[in-house]
């Protein structure tokens, strides 16, 4: 099967951040491959290793997005497309979905695979939007994938149980990081990635005029969360601690 995996480069949520006049600043402007996309790449690689096929990654973003693309190639993806945008623009999920839809219009594939959400914004919208625009059957929050003839079998984490869904190709799926542990690129993988084809295309080449892309949603500013004060930390004899805290929960916090 031919897999297209949509990958996004996102700021590392673990890196120290600060907010100045409503703007979000990252001390080290570290960008990483969205963890959910890494799982999507991993699963596509596993499935094509077992059932044959090809994995191509697609990323929409500014020039420096190549880091995330290289990572995916180093993991084992066969080739990549980089749809380059102006670094100073912020797009929302809808804008990216529009761009990706335009890109996929004339493409041949069995599966488009996305992450279930962006690690930094947790929006979780692009996949569904893209499926609707391309009129593909789809499923989200996949925790397991398999291939059966021309069908993609999705194990989806629902509110309560897990839903086993069969999607006829071509289809779209969004992946949870509960699906697998993404492989860490080997040194050979890193070396090979450099020689793999990366096609860089401009928005205009897929019939999109960046200046007319007006996101319907906008972030107007960032704020600290009202900080949660650390309470008491008790150390000492387990028995006494247990008794003390149990009673505090009852009398002081009356939470029991």
């Amino acid at each position: 099967m031919k897999f297209y995996v949509c990958i996004k480069q996102v700021p590392d949520v673990n890196a120290p951040i600060q907010i100045k006049e409503g703007q979000l600043l990252q001390d080290t402007d570290r960008m990483i491959l969205n963890a959910y996309d890494a799982s999507a790449v991993e699963e596509a690689l596993k499935l094509t290793e077992d059932h044959g096929g090809e994995v191509e990654v697609v990323s929409v973003g500014p020039a420096k997005t190549t880091e995330a693309i290289r990572k995916a190639l180093a993991m084992g993806a066969d080739k990549a497309v980089h749809i380059e945008t102006d670094g100073n623009r912020n797009f929302d999920s809808a804008s990216y979905a529009e761009i990706l839809a335009a890109f996929f219009e004339d493409k041949e594939y069995e599966v488009i695979s996305c992450g279930k959400q962006s690690q930094d914004t947790d929006a979780g919208l692009t996949g569904g939007m893209l499926a609707e625009k391309l009129d593909l059957p789809y499923s989200t929050n996949a925790v397991g994938l398999d291939i059966e003839n021309d069908k993609l079998i999705v194990k989806r984490q629902g509110d309560a149980g897990q839903e086993m869904i069969a999607l006829p190709a071509p289809c779209l799926v969004t992946c949870s990081n509960d699906m697998n542990e993404p492989r860490i690129p080997s040194l050979k993988g890193i070396m090979q990635s450099k020689k793999k084809p990366v096609e860089t295309i401009k928005l205009s080449s897929i019939g999109i005029d960046e200046s007319t892309l007006e996101p319907q949603t906008q972030v107007t500013g960032y704020r600290e969360k009202p900080a949660r004060q650390a309470g008491e930390k008790f150390e000492g004899e387990p028995d006494e601690l247990a008794k003390k805290v149990a009673n505090l929960l009852d009398e002081e916090a009356n939470a029991i």
């Binding site: 690129p185 040194l187 890193i190 450099k194 020689k195």
Partner: peptide, 10 residues
Amino acid sequence: AMDSFIATNI
């Protein structure tokens, strides 16, 4: 350019 590498996480 194609044969020298910086490899991290190794």
